[in-house]
Amino acid sequence: MHYTPAPRDPKADPIRINLLSDTQTRPTQAMREAMARAEVGDEQIGDDPTVNLLCERVASLLGKEAAVFMPSGTMCNVAATLAHCRPGDEILAHASAHIIAREGGAHAALGGFQITPLPGDDGQFAPGTFRAALHPRSRYQPPQTVVSVEQTANIGGGTIWKKAALDEVVEIAKANGLITHMDGARLLNACVATKISARDMAAGWDSAWIDFSKGLGAPIGGVIAGSRAFIDDVWRWKQRLGGSMRQAGICAAACVYALDHHVDRLADDHANARSLARGLSQINGIEVQEPETNLVFFRPDGAGVSGDKMVEALRKRGVLLAMMDGRIRACTHLDVSAAMIEETVALVREIVRGA
């Protein structure tokens, strides 16, 4: 799987429209001002009021007892599995899940865990598939300890797990003694699109987290929530993985600002994604997956242009996208306007005509 493009020279290869990922967002001026005004203290001893405020708000948002501020979403996933599992335990997740495809084998390297990939369309496994993968407790097989879902499913196309499916997975897991973990990197995208609250979406999940450095536009950070006992264990693993961030209120202030100002506007990103998909689908030979949130996957092969060549041609014209799992991925976000979407479609049409 190819994700990021080759290194580029910003002077020779200027990018005007960055559709590579929603991680490409930059803090707005108002967010920067909020960061500059932040009250700070030592996060290690619970003395940073802005970090404490952020954790309280996320715990409440997700309906959990407590939360902890982490540098990244990947660290949220890694610390969660380290807290939930023992070496030799088995985790079940979709075959394209971030914990399998995008975290450098951290769960095996650091925890000695086995992750079993479950098949399914659009980045999601069916509850029946999960049930079928369960086995009786036996000395011959690893203890099945955690089931993980990714909301939204990134490589699946930014698809949204239906609430009914989430609830059924929880029911099966609890009946069989498994812990439930939700990778909520784009959870709030799903909430805005479905109008289901984050608390309801995460109900029944023992641990869940949200990322602030994607569509919410903060420069850093994720917050993971769960029971107080679980968060105590996560803190121990945070210490082992590098420790606290000390006067982290400067970073937490960006996340608090994002909760106040950047959640509802995720709907704009979804509208831009639909507009991009609609425009691309009108070009002969372009195959487009209908977006549910802010991710648009498409193939230009039917138009006589390979995905790699399309990405390179767009890059030369100032538009940055990514190849992912044999498809082109475009990701709309805070720094992408409707006018940029129109220009991107026009450039794709130009490239296709040239081919």
Rank of each mutant, 00 (worst) to 15 (best):
C76T: 07
I91L: 13
V58N: 01
V58T: 02
P71T: 08
D89K: 08
A83E: 11
A95G: 00
F69K: 07
I99H: 06
H94Y: 10
H84Y: 12
S60K: 09
A106F: 10
A59I: 04
H94V: 07
G63Y: 05
R102E: 10
E56P: 00
A80V: 06
I99L: 15
L92N: 10
V51R: 02
L53T: 10
E56R: 11
A83D: 09
H84I: 08
C85P: 11
H84L: 14
G73V: 07
A79I: 02
T50S: 06
L54N: 00
R86C: 08
V51S: 05
C76Q: 08
I100W: 04
A106Y: 10
R57Q: 12
T74E: 14
I91K: 09
G104H: 12
P87W: 09
L54A: 01
E90Y: 04
A80N: 15
V58A: 00
P71E: 13
E90M: 15
M75E: 12
M70K: 05
A101V: 04
P87M: 11
A79T: 13
P71V: 11
G63Q: 06
E103S: 10
T81H: 15
T81M: 14
A93G: 10
V68L: 12
A83L: 07
P87E: 11
A66H: 13
A97H: 14
A97N: 14
M75H: 05
P71F: 10
S72H: 15
S60W: 00
L92E: 10
L62M: 02
A106L: 08
P71L: 12
V78T: 14
V78K: 02
L54E: 01
A101F: 00
P71W: 09
G63C: 04
E90N: 07
E56D: 10
M75S: 09
C76R: 01
R102T: 04
P87Y: 11
A95K: 07
A67S: 12
N77Q: 10
L54F: 01
A80F: 05
L82F: 06
T81F: 11
G88T: 10
G63H: 04
A101C: 08
A97P: 05
L53F: 00
G105Y: 06
E103I: 15
G63F: 04
S96K: 04
A80I: 05
T74M: 13
I91Q: 08
A67P: 04
T74L: 12
S72D: 12
A95E: 15
E56Y: 00
E90V: 08
L61G: 02
M70G: 01
